[in-house]
Amino acid sequence: MKRGRLALGIIGALALGLGGSVVALRAGAGETDRAELEKRWADAPSRFVTVDGVRMHVREEGPANGPVVVLLHGSIVNLHEWDDVVPLLADKYRVVRFDWSPYGLTGPDPSGFYSTPRSAQLMDGLMKALGHDKFAMVATSNGANVGLEFNRAYPGHVTAMAFSMLPLERPSQTRKVDWRLKWMLEAHKAVLPNWRHREFWRLMLEDTTPPEFTPTDRMVDQITEMNNLPGALDRQAQYIQANVRAFQSSDVGAVAEAVRVPVLLQWCSFDDVISQSADASVKRFTNTKVDVINYPDLGHFPMWEKPEKFTRDLRNWLDRQPPAPAG
């Protein structure tokens, strides 16, 4: 009897503690502080440029007179996705990367509108503010959608395009997801829709990369901290819903037909998020030549999984392209 009462008491105490934690988190206790994050993740050479009312986080590295290469990160992450790539390019190239809205340390959009076309519009304003008219573009995951839309809507600026993850169709809705990740996602949606535990993001990275890859604390910390900024997940949800509507109501992949510059696909076959094949992707580019490099051992984050191999092939291809004029 005493053991039973003790067990019930422990369970009750845990329930009260958990309940109190949930209430606190729903009230904003888990939100990160923007000023503190900027000290940690926006150190030099980071700066902020305001475009159409949006305070955008940008970094430029490499020789000021070097040919310009723009790096576009994927969804859920930020410009630090390219941390291991930039040093391998910046001896020759002027490397520009930024947190495209609504991700990273780029601030809320006063228009309240988040979509791929809006992200491309802000990119156009940013590149003009930075003074870069011609540049090669390297993009991954949803950053590829932003890059393709930018090229379609603002032609004449991009001189070459390289993609790793390339969602020309809606990402797979049937892929097998780690049960722990599915459980945590449903729990968060039901109880804490505007906050994610650090373990959630670690599992997200593990679920989309090869078994031998282990995400570093730095990778997990930057995603966790920036995605727990006040309102960040809500802004991202609005962007994702706009994407879903676009995929459901139009042929999103047709945007590839507007590309008339050389294209490189660094196809990562271990990835199962992207639903179309490499061959199907190549066929979408009806007005240009496409080079394909296949990596059977790389997943959704090749720039983290094997940065030297990934960047070596990317750089060899960039070096063969007619150089964009210096910034």
Score class of each variant (00 low, 15 high):
43 D>S: 12
298 L>G: 02
53 G>V: 08
129 A>Y: 05
225 E>C: 02
254 A>C: 00
42 A>K: 02
306 K>G: 01
72 L>G: 00
325 P>V: 10
182 K>W: 10
102 P>F: 09
165 M>R: 11
250 S>I: 04
16 L>I: 15
100 W>L: 03
104 G>A: 10
68 V>L: 06
233 L>R: 09
172 S>V: 00
164 S>Q: 11
6 L>K: 11
117 P>I: 03
246 A>E: 08
255 V>W: 02
125 G>I: 10
37 L>N: 10
308 E>N: 12
26 R>P: 03
115 S>A: 13
115 S>D: 06
176 K>I: 08
78 N>F: 06
279 D>M: 00
77 V>C: 06
61 E>M: 12
270 F>V: 04
155 P>E: 07
259 V>C: 10
38 E>K: 08
199 E>K: 12
68 V>T: 15
215 P>V: 06
121 Q>L: 10
22 V>K: 02
12 G>Y: 13
243 N>M: 14
19 G>C: 09
133 D>K: 14
62 G>S: 06
323 P>Q: 15
271 D>H: 10
129 A>Q: 14
64 A>Y: 03
248 Q>H: 07
261 V>R: 05
159 T>R: 14
52 D>Y: 04
50 T>A: 10
27 A>F: 02
236 Q>Y: 13
71 L>H: 00
145 N>D: 02
260 R>N: 13
106 T>D: 12
249 S>N: 13
130 L>H: 08
65 N>L: 11
42 A>P: 01
257 E>Q: 13
178 D>E: 05
144 A>L: 01
209 T>R: 02
277 S>Q: 04
81 E>Q: 14
292 V>E: 07
126 L>E: 05
207 D>A: 11
122 L>W: 05
71 L>K: 02
269 S>T: 12
98 F>T: 05
226 M>L: 15
207 D>L: 01
26 R>F: 07
270 F>S: 02
140 T>I: 11
166 L>K: 03
94 R>L: 02
86 V>G: 05
313 D>W: 00
311 T>K: 05
178 D>A: 09
171 P>H: 08
142 N>V: 05
326 A>R: 13
166 L>G: 06
210 P>G: 01
30 G>Y: 04
105 L>P: 08
147 G>P: 06
33 D>A: 13
261 V>S: 06
